[in-house]
Amino acid sequence: MSSESGAILHEGATISARFKMLLRLHKLEARRGLAEIVDNPISNFMTVLVIAIALALPAGLQVLLENGKTLSQSWDGASRISLYLKLNVSNSQTEHLAKSIKDNPAIDSVEVIYPEQALKDFSASSGFADALAELDSNPLPPTLVVQPNVNHTSPLASETLLSEFKQFELVEKAQLDLDWVRKLHALLELAEKAASALGLALGLAVLLIVGNTIRLSVQNRREEIEVVKLVGATDAFIRRPFLYTGFWYGLLAGVLCWLILEVSLIWLHQPVQNLAGLYQSEFAISSLNIKQSFQLVGISCALGLLGSWLSVGRHIRNIEPR
């Protein structure tokens, strides 16, 4: 008698038949897990929304940081060093110095701005042409704009070059144009750490939210679990629909989080472009690419599944038929 019960899969079945059966079972349980959410749309939507917001905060910060990095990188190329020479330096001396600097392998190009040219440009752009014409002598020094090559644009290399230039006799003042780019770098690094910490904390929060929701759902179905245990269900069998529920929470929350981010970024697009326009920049805020979108949803699904897994095993174990 007992050999007959369950004989279908224990003995005769081919592997493909077993696999098909398992697939069917999973499909059924996935649907049941989803039904669990759909049957109670309002409270479950709240849960999904909370998870989505908890994910949107670190993910949004990450996107902004990524944008900040692209922005700072586009400025890296412009990390030029301006050398203001002493006022009494002649044009030939200037040219000579420019040539010697150009010979340095770390230097890409040197642009020479003679005082006459500088004055002409300044009076043209500043609108002080009349006032400047009144001056008896040109107050502007000859200037060399030095562009280090790509391998020497890092903060440290720029610093070395700068101190080197400062020792030249003819140089009155050497200035790194984008000193603040370095500060931005440091700031971004700090923000990145903060974002990681925030991500970790909120990821944990998501686990707890899902875990708690699943715990309530297990308690609500206590009677059903008892019955199913009585007819011989293993813990794994009982666990599966709950794991699917957790997975669906993660999936829905991930998609919702993605939507929240996209809408926020579209909303930010115009103001950022306006701001960039003020700095003569072409910079436009970029949203998540396909890979990042899938990563976001994937992480969300994994968190949902993990949260449910951590919670469901313990609580199902505690329910024994009476």
């Binding site: 369950g6 279908i8 899969l9 059966m21 059903e224 019955v227 199913v228 007819v231 293993t234 069998f237």
Partner: peptide
């Protein structure tokens, strides 16, 4: 001890589903 959210068929099928029948 029946499951009231499932049909009669599903209730009776429960032990077989658990045992993994086709």
């Amino acid at each position: 001890r029946l499951l009231f959210d499932r049909s009669v068929f599903d209730n009776v099928a429960l032990p077989l589903m658990i045992a993994g029948y086709d």
